[in-house]
Write a protein that binds this DNA or RNA. Structure first.
Lengths: 210, 210
DNA sequence: GTGGAGTGTCAATGATGTGGACATGAGGGG
DNA sequence: CCCCTCATGTCCACATCATTGACACTCCAC
């Protein structure tokens, strides 16, 4: 209601999600108990239920927040290389693969398959499609804005390529995140038929021989 | 009481201080009204009074927080040059002078003299001595930890020199913050009789001839 | 199947922010 | 000098929301 109440409310949610994050990382989703979550968050168990309603809702919120942070991280990687499509692609993919390797929550969201010990977490993601679509839309918008010189069809192609290849490497890693990212970036650039703004006349051309 | 309550409480205080900060920066201390502060902070005027009690208390808290941030900023500058006393000194002093030039709140705390339009703000700092002593103590501790090879007496001397010279330059600027910082740093190094860990045999010695 | 643990719900209680009213004092103009 | 205005600081009734303890229900292990 009054703006301060909203702040308190979001503070409460943050505390809960922080606590849940740590506990899930330590014991997995199935090993997560709401009582410790409430205790660590510094609130009563009842308050937690008033705010979230169920354990599954906590999981949903947790995954949602993580996905948002994840997309934001990709955005930042991309923005750091606005001038170079290949570098931007490599950075974005590298970040993604690294996160997928390190962050168990992200991994669960992106793979969202195989019923391991944490099948519940994968299940509660309300399907990975939303995240996929959001990411793809985000990349499409970014690409249109950052590289207008690439024609629209090629852009869409490149975005599809980069998303699918990245997911593929998450599910079935082939090399180190960095190496995989480098390769995917190169493929993406070629798919976009992107020509680097020539750095200097007579510079070496490292694109594929036609 | 319960940890969450404390979080809410500190959130409330933060919101209030943020609002007060902006308003003071815009209209000065004497132009500050508590009703707008409460409104911007998103709470009722009564709640503001419940938490702080008086306008002066708000000012005290505001200055206190700013002083803390300020000391933290100095710490970070110092830590960025742990390996080089002169560079650390220059960075710390430079940061201080820059802040004193930019930040009206900091300026009020450090000078705390002359009854201008904002004499109340200067007055409510409960005297600048506490900040001075805190800063000096912080620097003493830092110096002892970072440069144990400098004997204790020289360290204390150097700290006194750097604090007094810096304040002097705040009150009576002589050159640009950077240039002033450079000079103060050099003087500090010489006061400490600090000898740079020799970078290479035969390197030029830029210390004063005895 | 029996006991224990965890989820989800409920009602009573306590703490705290809200809104309105009001006394007080400082400052400005008639 | 008096009056009006505005801001500070206080009081109180009310509403909101977290806390606490209890309880039903389900699932799992012994």
């Amino acid at each position: 209601m009054t703006r301060f109440r909203e702040s308190v409310r979001s503070l409460l949610r943050e505390q809960v999600l922080n606590a849940a994050y740590d506990l899930v990382a330590a014991r997995g989703w199935s090993g997560l108990r709401l009582a410790p979550v409430a205790r660590i968050a510094g609130i009563s168990r009842q308050t937690l239920y008033n705010e979230f309603g169920s354990k599954e809702a906590v999981g949903r919120a947790l995954v949602e927040r993580e996905a948002e942070r994840f997309l934001l991280g990709i955005q930042q990687e991309l923005d750091a290389h606005r001038d170079d499509l290949e570098a931007a692609a490599a950075a974005g993919v590298g970040f993604t693969l690294q996160q997928a390797a390190d962050n168990s929550l992200i991994k669960a969201v992106l793979t969202a398959a195989r019923g391991g010990d944490d099948h519940l977490l994968a299940y509660l993601t309300t399907r990975p499609e939303p995240v996929f679509n959001t990411a793809t839309a985000m990349l499409d918008a970014y690409a249109a804005d950052a590289w207008p010189e690439v024609d629209e069809e090629s852009r869409h192609l490149a975005v599809e390529v980069i998303v699918r290849l990245t997911v593929s490497h998450i599910v079935q890693p082939a090399a180190s995140p960095e190496e995989s990212a480098r390769r995917i970036a190169k493929i993406t650039v070629r798919t976009a038929q992107y020509v680097r703004p020539d750095p200097a006349p007579g510079a070496a051309d490292d694109s594929l021989p036609a």
